[in-house]
Amino acid sequence: MKCGVRFCGGCNPRYDRGKALEKIKEQLTDVDFVHAAEGEAHDLLLVIGGCTNCCASYDQFETKLGILKMWDKTHIDQICDEIEKKN
């Protein structure tokens, strides 16, 4: 599975978003996480926001299985479970 990743701009991050992605990657070694790219179809899109606004735009990306959004490090396990269900 190819999962595109979209980060917010980081104007008010309340946790280390890069570390959160690394923890997700450690749990889901069979998923190919790539920076989301316009014009490229991804199986899934993971939007990683730094605060509750989770304001990163994502309408410009194509996905086959949908979009998952997180805005807190406590979402890591839930995101992993959701991705495993779709994989």
Rank of each mutant, 00 (worst) to 15 (best):
C3T: 14
P13T: 12
K23V: 04
K2T: 14
K19R: 09
H35Y: 11
L44N: 03
D30I: 03
Y15L: 05
Q60F: 12
V47N: 09
C8L: 03
C55Q: 03
G39Y: 00
V47L: 14
L28G: 01
Y58D: 12
P13W: 09
R14D: 05
L44E: 06
I48H: 11
E22G: 06
A36M: 09
L44S: 00
G9N: 13
C51Y: 05
K23A: 13
G10F: 04
L28D: 03
E22C: 01
R17H: 09
K23P: 06
F33G: 06
A36K: 07
E22H: 06
V47E: 09
V34L: 11
C11M: 14
K2I: 15
L46V: 05
E38P: 11
D43G: 01
E22P: 08
Y58P: 07
K25Y: 00
G9T: 12
E40F: 09
G9E: 14
G9D: 12
R17L: 13
G50T: 04
V31L: 14
K23F: 08
L46S: 03
A41F: 06
Y15Q: 02
V5L: 12
G49T: 02
D32F: 07
C55L: 06
G4R: 02
P13E: 12
E38H: 06
R6V: 15
A36D: 09
I24S: 01
Y58G: 10
G50M: 01
G10W: 00
C8G: 06
Q60P: 10
N12C: 11
H42W: 01
C51N: 09
L45F: 03
A20F: 05
G50Y: 05
F7M: 11
V34I: 10
L45E: 07
A41V: 13
N53P: 03
Q60G: 11
G18K: 14
R6K: 15
F7Y: 15
I48S: 11
D16T: 00
T52C: 15
D43I: 02
C54E: 07
R6F: 07
F33Q: 10
L44W: 01
R6E: 13
L45H: 05
F7Q: 04
V47W: 10
C55W: 00
D16S: 02
C11W: 11
L45Y: 08
L46E: 05
P13V: 13
T52K: 15
R6M: 14
V5H: 11
T29P: 13
L46Q: 05
V47K: 10
Y58A: 09
S57A: 15
N53Q: 10
C8F: 02
P13Q: 12
L28C: 03
G18T: 10
R6I: 15
K2M: 13
G10V: 03
K19S: 06
T29F: 11
K25Q: 14
C8M: 09
Y58N: 12
D30M: 08
Y58L: 10
G50N: 04
A56I: 08
K2Y: 13
Q60W: 09
G18I: 08
D32G: 03
E22F: 07
C3F: 07
K19G: 04
H35E: 13
R17C: 14
G49R: 06
S57T: 15
Y15G: 03
L28H: 02
N53Y: 04
E22Q: 13
I48W: 10
D16F: 00
Q60K: 15
E22K: 09
G39P: 07
Q60D: 13
D32W: 09
G9S: 14
C3E: 08
V31A: 11
L28V: 01
E26F: 06
L44H: 00
N53A: 09
K25I: 04
K19V: 04
